[in-house]
Computed example of a mutant assay.
Amino acid sequence: MSVTIKDVAKRAGVSPSTVSRVLSNHPRISHATSEKVRAIMQDMGYHPNIMAKSLVSKTTQSLGVILPKPAEELFLNTFFMELIRGIVAQANRSGYDVVLSSGSSEQEEVDAVSRLVYGGRIDGAILLYSRKNDPVVDFLSRNQFPAVLVGRSEQHSNMITVDTDNIQAAADATRHLIQMGHRRIGFVSGPPELVVSVDRMEGFKRALQEAGLEYRKDWIVEGEFLQESGYRAMSFFMNLPERPTALVVVDDMVSFGILRGLYELGYRVPEDVAIVSFNNIALSELSTPPLTSIDIGIYHLGYTASQALIQSIQDKNKVDETIHYQRHIVPHRLVLRESSMFSPSAPMSPPTL
């Protein structure tokens, strides 16, 4: 016979309503009472009926995480795994489960999100990316559904966002290379439809302009956040008649592809090409050479996004038309390593093979 909430209440010497409040993390329940009741629940093997609770409270205690790519491609970049780790850590700490959803096209993503929302399967949603004219953001905003965007929204002023100051971060990365003596600096960007790509390009341009350096379109390459994009970018740069001596790269995984391409062609980093990258994932200090990278606090981005969403769900004043725009900025820092620590003294020339 299964243990009921009344059984737990009787054993704890409290009312069933007190046990219910403990389960919902009610602020008026003392820490001592909460600890006592939870210990008895564990001892008796009591597990709340989530479906029944959901029908009464009209909540699911679940957050939806909307992935930007099909899972098999997404998880090739450890950035997203670390981001999700932060989301799950805060969600679990607050008593929420996490539901992952994705689609291979924008329409499939909208369809997946609509099933979660209209089916009452989640209390709020976290988007792991920010696109221009994003139909998923439009859908969530139109339905006034609690949502947090990891990134910056260009289309909805009432969207809660958690972001890095990507313009400033890219400017910092570029200024470092300028301070090291580089005057021919290229940029390896992400997909142009992503706001993060736009912002980092803007920061790159600003730093060049401040230093009186030329912005050259032939030194700009766009691609996906994958190693293969970096490898292809390197092939492009090496075929130019005049090549940059340094690169700002939008993502560490892309930088790994660049390192592989340079190694195969016989070029040295940082002596022939210096590199500053983004995200500072764990592997960046283990590469050859170790990557100088902008640490954007990936785990904290996810943790803060989860925290902000749960707060908006629990605060009824923030799920109606009076929602105010909130932008949470996670600080960044430049982590210096070997890939950029070289001052060029002469134009780069092909290696002797």
Rank of each mutant, 00 (worst) to 15 (best):
D252P: 15
E285M: 15
Q326V: 00
S343E: 15
L309F: 02
R268W: 12
S312V: 02
A308E: 04
V319K: 01
S293C: 09
V276G: 03
H324P: 13
P270R: 09
S287Q: 01
H300G: 00
I323R: 03
H324E: 15
T304Y: 09
I323N: 03
V335W: 10
S277Y: 10
P290V: 06
Y325K: 00
Q311W: 01
R333A: 14
A282M: 14
E264D: 13
T288V: 09
I294C: 08
A346V: 15
N280S: 13
R333Y: 04
P331K: 07
Y263Q: 08
S255D: 08
D315Q: 03
Q326D: 10
A305M: 14
S312Y: 01
E285D: 10
E338M: 01
D251A: 05
H332M: 11
H332Y: 06
V269K: 01
E271L: 10
Y325M: 12
P347A: 11
P351Y: 09
E338C: 04
K316C: 15
P270C: 10
V335Q: 12
I313W: 06
I258H: 02
L265P: 01
I313Q: 04
S340V: 01
P350D: 05
R327A: 00
H328S: 00
I294F: 06
A282E: 12
D315P: 07
S255A: 15
R337G: 06
P270Q: 03
I281H: 11
P331Y: 07
P351L: 03
L301P: 12
R337F: 01
I258Q: 02
L334F: 05
S343H: 14
